Amino acid sequence: MDSLVVLVLCLSCLLLLSLWRQSSGRGKLPPGPTPLPVIGNILQIGIKDISKSLTNLSKVYGPVFTLYFGLKPIVVLHGYEAVKEALIDLGEEFSGRGIFPLAERANRGFGIVFSNGKKWKEIRRFSLMTLRNFGMGKRSIEDRVQEEARCLVEELRKTKASPCDPTFILGCAPCNVICSIIFHKRFDYKDQQFLNLMEKLNENIKILSSPWIQICNNFSPIIDYFPGTHNKLLKNVAFMKSYILEKVKEHQESMDMNNPQDFIDCFLMKMEKEKHNQPSEFTIESLENTAVDLFGAGTETTSTTLRYALLLLLKHPEVTAKVQEEIERVIGRNRSPCMQDRSHMPYTDAVVHEVQRYIDLLPTSLPHAVTCDIKFRNYLIPKGTTILISLTSVLHDNKEFPNPEMFDPHHFLDEGGNFKKSKYFMPFSAGKRICVGEALAGMELFLFLTSILQNFNLKSLVDPKNLDTTPVVNGFASVPPFYQLCFIPV
């Protein structure tokens, strides 16, 4: 009986604490739906499609509103004006990374994606500088992407125009580009180590996009005490870190300090320079996690976009025909596509942009946080508050993009057929937390897609009208449904 009384008292205290925290903070924060004790607004949000729920709530509470995930307040920004004001106009104040408990377990605050403060700034600055020195957006990395595009075309030829699921092959190409940047090595598509790495990356994007992960991140005790797919994700990350550590040891034994070959060499050189400046942010643990982040951000996002792009091109054969006509006119058949071609191919450029806009790969991006107490639109948001960005509300804005739910390359073309930029184009987020590999991803999408369409016609196994382009999961990332196609050599 005594234990029951204690339990009831504990629960009562928890409920009172929950109510007090919510009521004391709500006077400062933007308005929002009334949260339930302990669980907050979790029942009012469709976990399978958070973005749709945010759109519905914005119609009631406006472009800036507050939700509670458990006891934790989260300020939501919906629509271009609110997102721009926060991420661009007040970029420094909104540059923090929001709480992501599962990532905390995986990387302990290291790396480039989930770190904060001085650690994040130094690692991000170093990573950007190193990638630029190796030619991100310049010639040397373009050579690597072109080489991988040629290998991709050869792998597709091996399908002999038979029906195939493109998931694996389209994942190999961007993964190999990242391998060449980090390890100075590309792998054969049949290499077992490479296959294991690909498998872990593919599993992780599916797990991260599941409703279960949303629950884990908002009720963090689940991570330590409950079984579930989150444990598989943590094991996959541990596998990748151990693999990278092996490569780091190989580099330490063979590195030429006067001739760095890749990202690992550059990081080890930085560690050597910083060894007298303790404590340094440049450690082996930081290198492991930064490399894992580059793999995660640079492989599955690009391969998922490529997979979605081919599905949309199957669905819209008239678009595919126009792209192939432009390829034939500008590039021809006797040389590989290059980035200089893009400025002469406005329709193809528009298609690449429209694919990214339409699929809305990361509907709410990753959570941000404010780095200080900030007054925002007459609300006071306390330091450390998590900020949720609705990228969907920007990419699918119906004023900027008429009929935003329709796939239409003319969203990025003017009346004369010239490519038209849009400030609403934010597939990689915006501001200080914009994806480090934005330029690389854009290069890969253009070169891989043009190389495929230069060499193959795409054949659907069903009537294009019957192809479903609805994402199968739409949590962290929008993942396309399973499909097969035939690559018919031109």
Rank of each mutant, 00 (worst) to 15 (best):
D2Y: 08
S3I: 13
V5C: 14
V5G: 11
V6M: 09
V8G: 11
L9S: 06
L11D: 02
L11W: 13
L11I: 08
S12R: 00
C13D: 00
W20R: 08
W20C: 05
K28Y: 15
P30V: 00
G32S: 04
P37S: 05
I39L: 12
I45N: 02
I50H: 09
I50G: 05
K52E: 08
K52C: 11
K52W: 07
S58Q: 10
S58F: 03
K59T: 15
G62L: 00
G62S: 02
P63S: 13
F65W: 05
F69D: 04
K72C: 04
V76C: 11
H78V: 11
V83T: 05
K84C: 11
K84H: 12
E92V: 09
F94T: 07
S95A: 14
R97F: 05
A103P: 15
E104T: 12
E104F: 07
E104P: 09
E104C: 07
G109E: 10
F110A: 09
F110R: 13
G111E: 05
G111I: 02
I112T: 11
F114Q: 13
S115W: 05
N116D: 08
G117F: 05
E122K: 15
I123A: 08
S127K: 02
R132I: 12
S140A: 09
S140P: 09
I141G: 02
D143S: 13
R144M: 11
R144W: 10
V145F: 00
C151N: 07
L152P: 00
E154Y: 04
E154H: 10
L156K: 00
K160V: 07
A161T: 10
S162T: 14
C164L: 11
L170A: 03
A173D: 01
A173R: 00
I178P: 01
H184G: 12
D191I: 00
Q192L: 11
Q192G: 09
F194R: 02
F194G: 03
E199I: 13
E199F: 10
N202M: 07
E203S: 09
I205C: 15
L208V: 12
S210L: 06
W212A: 07
Q214T: 13
Q214V: 08
C216E: 06
N217V: 06
N217W: 08
F219W: 14
S220M: 13
Y225W: 10
P227M: 13
T229E: 13
T229M: 13
H230K: 08
N231Q: 15
K232Q: 13
K235Q: 14
N236K: 03
M240G: 02
K241Q: 10
H251S: 06
Q252S: 07
Q252D: 05
M255T: 13
N259P: 11
Q261G: 10
D262S: 14
D262C: 14
F263W: 06
F263V: 06
L268T: 05
L268Y: 05
M269P: 00
M269K: 15
K273E: 05
E274N: 14
H276T: 08
N277R: 15
P279S: 14
F282K: 03
T283N: 15
T283P: 03
I284R: 07
E285D: 14
E285S: 12
E285L: 06
E288V: 14
T290L: 14
L294P: 01
L294Y: 04
G296E: 14
T305Y: 06
T305L: 09
L311Q: 01
L311A: 04
K315G: 04
A321Q: 06
Q324R: 11
Q324T: 08
E326Y: 01
I327L: 07
G332T: 05
S336G: 12
C338V: 09
C338L: 08
Q340E: 15
D341Y: 07
R342D: 00
S343P: 05
M345C: 06
Y347T: 01
A350Y: 01
V352E: 01
H353Y: 02
V355I: 13
V355Y: 00
R357V: 00
D360S: 11
L361W: 05
P363A: 05
T364S: 11
T364I: 14
S365G: 13
S365M: 09
H368M: 09
I374R: 03
R377Y: 06
Y379C: 07
G384A: 04
T386R: 08
I387Q: 01
I387C: 11
L388W: 15
L388G: 01
I389D: 02
L395T: 10
M406T: 14
F407P: 00
D408P: 00
F412A: 00
L413P: 01
D414L: 04
E415V: 11
K421I: 12
K421R: 10
S422V: 05
K423H: 12
K423W: 07
F425I: 04
M426L: 10
P427I: 03
F428T: 03
G431D: 04
G431N: 06
R433Y: 10
R433D: 10
I434Y: 08
C435L: 14
M443N: 03
E444T: 03
F448L: 03
L449G: 01
L461E: 15
T469A: 15
T470L: 15
V473H: 09
F476S: 08
V479L: 15
P480V: 07
F482T: 14
P489Q: 02
P489V: 00
P489H: 03
